[in-house]
Design a protein around this nucleic acid. Structure first.
Length: 861
RNA sequence: GCCCGCUUGGUGGAAUUGGUAGACACACAGGACUUAAAAUCCUGAGGCUCGAAAGAGCCGUGCCGGUUCGAGUCCGGCAGCGGGCACCA
């Protein structure tokens, strides 16, 4: 009798065999083709969650598959280990951030190891380790010397709860991404990385990322936000200086009726100094909220200053200059010209303040004498009129003409601007990589000399009061200037943690090197061939990494532009949520489902309200800890379940029934394999060449097995794991249905053995422990992880008899079996001979017959 | 407001990219085994109508229309759900 598959014993056995043999250790080898599989490394929050299980299982399938295909596979793991939660833990639990982080790493590493991932643990790294951040500091100093890092004073987003500055990307709806507190504007001196220097390149190169999801490329495109238009430098009446604006519609300049500047614009501030009402207006604008709702509700308002701008094309035409609450200092030049006829917001503004509305673009069918703008601005294409030298041109031609004329006059020029801002990387936090700079009153910001790197975090810090512990430290920041030796001050800001994750994929290539990256290693391994992670990183992390790679190229640390050749964004793991009568969230294990669809509390028996399927989150308690699933069912079951059913890019629902289904299948596979091997000991012999004269049943089984090889191979290549899983189920069903007496001769046994070998190989990437155990039982001397992927025999994946659908007027009436590629006459005859076809014809003669070889015969009457 | 994506049985989802819709799984129902339960095995099933049954017919991929011998797949319009960006000049 087959024994019950003991996953606990088997899984730990194979994990230690693989570890002892170093099965997943990798070295660069220029003679072999490489494949770099990487999943986004985790933040060590304490325990792994189901999202990790899904993410790392997918990556592991790819890694194991590629290894079997003969690639030299790099598949590393590390920890995105700096960040605010460690400081919160320090404050709340009185535990040092380093201790908290390393404890979490230890716990999570143990959990990952229980998943049986084919990782090269020798390359493990943690961004909070000086052995990592030393080289990040080096990189930063190289960037600094190359002019890619600078200190700038700017209005910054200040999070009053976390006491730190935030990047634009970290402000969502006017609130801090972590704290949720409304962000305040503060003018501070901060470190920036010059990502805008690459704005155009980062945009253009998206086109070449053909193995990235279209959606992510689009999101990055929008984020970079390229606009083509022109700068126009308006002269100001009775003044020497000019007011520069940006516009995308220089073709409508003749329709200008006002100018508007941001409340933060220098001209506005200047006006405020002499005009108390202007000052009051600006104060009012700054007091207004920046949340989406506040902006929505806010009225478009302006304050008319005493300034007047002179039109570049119309002699003596003066345009009033307003301070307007809807003009942003952060975009363009913080100033605009208003053309009410062709911009809805300008029109509303003009109506409100009684300004001229002069149409200059004539809609195709409109009459130039009578066309007028009422409530709606005209924003479509048309013929330019009322516009001097541009009259008669189309919109696009007029844009060019206006740009050229502006340049000629010295009043502006065509230009391109971007929404993307430089990356603010300073954070006023302790648990991050120190910025290796020393501030000297005489010499300015000085790089820390290479010999003094790393700038290590001090251990003796306290978290009992808000603000940056580094700044409060009694001695740490007091150093001498490396240039002049005078008393100087160490930079106490640390890097945004997104800096840490912007180059870790490169460090994995030579994780212990005493330079940031070893060129030969990086040149061999990069780019990452397949990167896998959540879509929530579609903009920030991926854009920063693309920038970093270019910056590393500029500073001679690498030679490539794009770090990730292939990107896959996986869906999230959802679970039902539960609430008791009092409205308190309940954990899934506190709830018992009833056959009638209802649910009750396990202890009290009270009815429980079953809520929506939502992303697993601690606050809603709808979490299932992976550790418990792995203890109860084993790693293979957990892996199989997250690969089944849902396409990997889509959200999946975690259900107990689904897990049990996966568990039953692993047991069934084991019984199937062991049962056959016990009944037919000959299956333990190595396969020789395929015998001739196989029975029909044997050939049918071979065909099924080889078709499955071809299909599953394609499914893995195309990231259709759920489809691959379904085809493996189908093959297992086919094997279960085989009658023992039909395949008991020598040829039959040979085919059985081949089919079992194939089954074990196909489940190898997904159920690695079970597969290895079955493989061993099949008598192989070599480990499955060291065995090549099976090849589908092309002569077996094509049937010589095909089932063809017979339609009458496109409606299915019968199916017939025909020899593959049989001639037209035979197919037609066979189709017309079908009684069901004759019935449907009702005696009519076919007008024509459409034949799709090996697929369809459609009789048209 | 702008830009994307999705919508198929009770459920998750398949469908060779214009060619037999519902593979595979979950859940369900019936049966076998069992003192019983669990486990396992077998069988069934999109809906409706007719039929004792075998079977036959009609309808069916969010809704309306189109192209085609043939549409889940392509085109136009609409609705619903989800995502991204947004006072962007």
């Amino acid at each position: 009798m087959p024994s019950r598959y003991n996953f606990l014993e088997t899984e730990t056995k194979w994990q230690s065999v693989w570890a002892e043999r170093g099965s997943f250790r990798t070295e660069a080898d220029p003679k072999r083709p490489k494949y770099y599989v990487l999943e986004m490394f985790p933040y060590p929050s304490g325990r792994i969650h189901m999202g990790h299980v899904r993410n790392y299982t997918m990556g592991d399938v790819v890694a194991r598959y590629k290894r079997a295909r003969g690639f030299n596979v790099l598949h590393p793991m590390g920890w995105d280990a700096f960040g605010l939660p460690a400081e919160n833990a320090a404050r709340d639990q009185k535990i040092h951030p380093a201790r908290w982080t390393y404890d979490n790493i230890a716990a999570m590493r143990a959990e990952l190891k229980r998943m049986g991932l084919s990782l090269d643990w020798k390359r493990e790294l943690a961004t909070c380790h000086p052995g990592y951040y030393k080289y990040q500091q080096q990189l930063f100093l190289d960037f600094f010397k190359a002019g890619l890092a600078y200190r700038g004073e700017a209005f910054v987003n200040w999070d009053p709860v976390d006491h730190t500055v935030l990047a634009n990307e970290q402000v969502i709806d006017g609130r801090g991404w972590r704290s949720g507190a409304p962000v305040e504007k503060k003018k501070l001196s901060q470190w920036f990385l010059k990502i805008t220097a690459y704005a155009d390149e980062l945009l253009e190169a998206l086109k070449g990322l053909d193995r990235w999801p279209e959606k992510v490329r689009l999101m990055q495109e929008n984020w970079i936000g390229k606009s083509t238009g022109a700068y126009v430098r308006f002269k100001l009446k009775d003044r020497a200086d000019r007011l520069t604006i940006f516009t995308t519609r220089p073709d409508t300049l003749f329709g200008a009726s006002f100018m508007a500047v941001s409340p933060d614009h220098p001209l506005a501030e200047e006006a405020a100094r002499s005009d108390p009402r202007a000052a009051a207006f600006i104060a009012e604008c700054r007091a207004a909220g920046t949340s989406e709702a506040a902006i929505e509700a806010q009225e478009k308002k302006g304050y008319r200053t005493a300034l007047e701008a002179l039109h570049p094309f119309i002699k003596d035409k003066r345009l009033p200059v307003y301070i307007a609450n809807f003009v942003l200092m952060e975009y363009g030049t913080g100033a605009i010209f208003g053309c009410p006829a062709h911009d809805q917001r300008d029109l509303d503004f003009a109506r409100k303040y009684g300004l001229d509305v002069t149409p200059v673009v004539l809609p195709p069918d409109a009459d130039p004498g009578s066309f007028a703008i009422a409530e709606l601005a005209y924003t479509e294409d048309g013929a330019i009129y009322n516009s001097g030298f541009m009259n008669g041109l189309g919109v696009e031609a007029a844009k060019m003409a206006a740009g050229a004329r502006l340049k000629e006059q010295g009043d502006g020029e065509p230009t391109t601007i971007f929404r993307l801002r430089d990356w603010l990387v300073s954070r006023q936090r302790y648990w991050g990589c120190p910025i290796p700079i020393i501030h000297c009153e005489k010499c300015g910001p000085q790089p820390v000399p290479a010999k003094d790197l790393p700038v290590k975090l001090p251990d003796d810090v306290t978290f009992d009061q808000p603000g940056n512990p580094l700044d409060r430290h009694p001695t740490w920041k007091h150093v001498d200037c490396p240039n002049c030796g005078a008393k100087a001050r160490r930079e106490t800001d640390t890097f945004d943690t997104f800096v840490d994750s912007s180059w870790y994929f490169a460090r994995f290539c030579s994780p212990r090197a005493d330079v940031p990256v070893e060129r030969d290693k990086v040149d061999y391994w990069l780019p990452v061939d397949q990167y896998i992670g959540g879509v929530e990183h579609a903009i920030l992390h991926l854009l920063y990494s693309r920038f970093f790679t270019r910056a590393m190229k500029l500073t001679h640390h690498a030679k490539l532009d794009e770090p990730f050749a292939g990107l896959f964004t996986q869906g999230m793991v959802l679970h039902e949520s539960y609430k008791d009568r009092a409205g308190q969230w309940l954990y899934p294990e506190e709830v018992e489902k009833r056959p009638d669809g209802g649910a009750v509390h396990v202890k009290t028996g009270q009815a429980v309200e079953v809520g929506r399927k939502e992303v697993m989150s601690k606050s809603k308690k709808n979490v299932v800890p992976p550790a418990r699933i792995i203890e109860t069912y084993g790693a293979d079951t957990a892996r199989w379940f997250v690969l089944s059913d849902s396409p990997p890019e889509r959200d999946m629902e975690w259900t107990d029934a689904g897990v049990e289904g996966a568990w039953r299948f692993t047991q069934r596979l084991w019984r199937l394999a062991e049962g056959w091997i016990e009944a037919f000991p000959a299956l333990k012999e190595e396969l020789g060449a395929a015998p001739r004269d196989l029975s029909a049943d044997a050939v049918a089984l071979r065909r099924a097995a080889h078709k499955t090889v071809a299909a599953v191979t394609e499914d893995i290549e195309k990231f259709r794991f759920n489809s691959g899983v379904a085809k493996i189920y189908a093959l297992a069903n086919t094997l279960s249905d085989v009658k023992p007496e039909a395949l008991a001769d020598a040829g039959g046994l040979w085919v059985r053995k081949e089919a079992l070998d194939i089954l074990a190989q196909l489940i190898g990437p997904m159920l690695p422990h079970l597969a290895e155990e079955i493989w061993l039982s099949l008598g192989h001397n070599r480990l499955l992880v060291e065995t090549a992927w099976p090849e589908a025999d092309p002569t077996l994946t094509i049937d010589d008899v095909v089932t063809v659908a017979v339609q009458v007027n496109g409606k299915l009436r019968a199916t017939i079996s025909l020899p593959r590629d049989c001639d037209r006459a035979a197919a037609e005859a066979a189709a017309l001979a079908e009684p069901a076809v004759q019935r449907a014809l009702e005696g009519r003669n076919p007008k024509k017959v459409i034949l799709v070889p090996n697929r369809i015969v459609n009789v048209v009457v």
